[in-house]
């Protein structure tokens, strides 16, 4: 039988290797599988190679999360308020964290971060969302083709449906015209 060791060796995307408490690392199903099924991580030479998405910075964030939730006896309220603070980071890091957590199959964290990302998107105009996430505004080019076909009567309809009642730019909306008319 394998001896359970208190520490485990992990290799992050930048090829650096670090030692972390096994008990905490085991929270990530992917790491858990590597340890139990493949016997990896017991020494520096056979460090567990983490997915590309896991940078050292993300690993340290994820381990913080696991460390907090691994402590037994915390109340739901405590956990909730920790979670809330935990995802108060800039959106780029939030996306990176989501991606890293997903690659480690850490479902509760993916759930938490995707909820946070949804909250950011919620209630914003497409322009605002594009700004926040640095999305390319590459849909307007083909709009001109369609614009001449736009049925005037449906624009109001469309605006109110898509943007609530706050109005919005016609050009980006015409794209959706076939969805909502």
């Amino acid at each position: 039988m394998k001896m359970m060791k208190p520490y485990v060796w992990l290799q992050t995307s930048d090829d650096s290797i670090q030692q972390v408490e096994q008990e905490i690392a085991m929270f990530c199903p992917l790491i858990c599988q590597e340890i139990i099924q493949k016997g990896m991580g017991s020494s520096k030479n056979c460090a567990i190679c983490l997915p590309q998405q896991v940078s050292p910075a993300m690993l340290s964030l994820i381990l913080d999360y696991c460390r907090f939730h691994q402590v037994p006896g915390r109340s739901n309220k405590e956990r909730k308020s920790y979670d809330e603070k935990f995802v108060r980071i800039d959106t780029e890091r939030l996306c990176e964290l989501t991606s890293a957590a997903d690659s480690l199959q850490l479902k509760p964290l993916v759930d938490l971060t995707s909820r946070a990302l949804a909250r950011i998107i919620e209630g914003k105009t497409p322009e605002e969302i594009r700004d926040i996430f640095h999305l390319p505004d590459d849909l307007t080019e083909n709009v001109e083709v369609e614009e001449e076909h736009v049925d005037d009567r449906s624009v109001d309809d469309l605006l109110s449906f898509i943007n609530g009642n706050d109005g919005g730019k016609l050009n980006i909306l015409t794209i959706l015209i076939f969805v909502f008319t």
């Binding site: 959106t91 996306c95 989501t98 991606s99 997903d102 993916v110 759930d111 995707s114 909820r115 990302l117 949804a118 909250r119 998107i121 919620e122 209630g123 497409p126 969302i129 594009r130 996430f133 999305l135 390319p136 505004d137 590459d138 849909l139 449906f161 898509i162 980006i172 909306l173 794209i175 959706l176 969805v179």
Partner: peptide, 28 residues
């Protein structure tokens, strides 16, 4: 965000109303 795996995007969108989810099609 655009490069997150499909199932993660689905998860994000599932927290939005279907109206807001469909609206994301005009983003890029």
């Amino acid at each position: 965000i655009s490069y997150l795996p499909g199932h993660v995007i689905d998860q994000i969108l599932s927290h939005l109303s279907i109206k807001e989810a469909v609206r994301t099609s005009v983003l890029s």
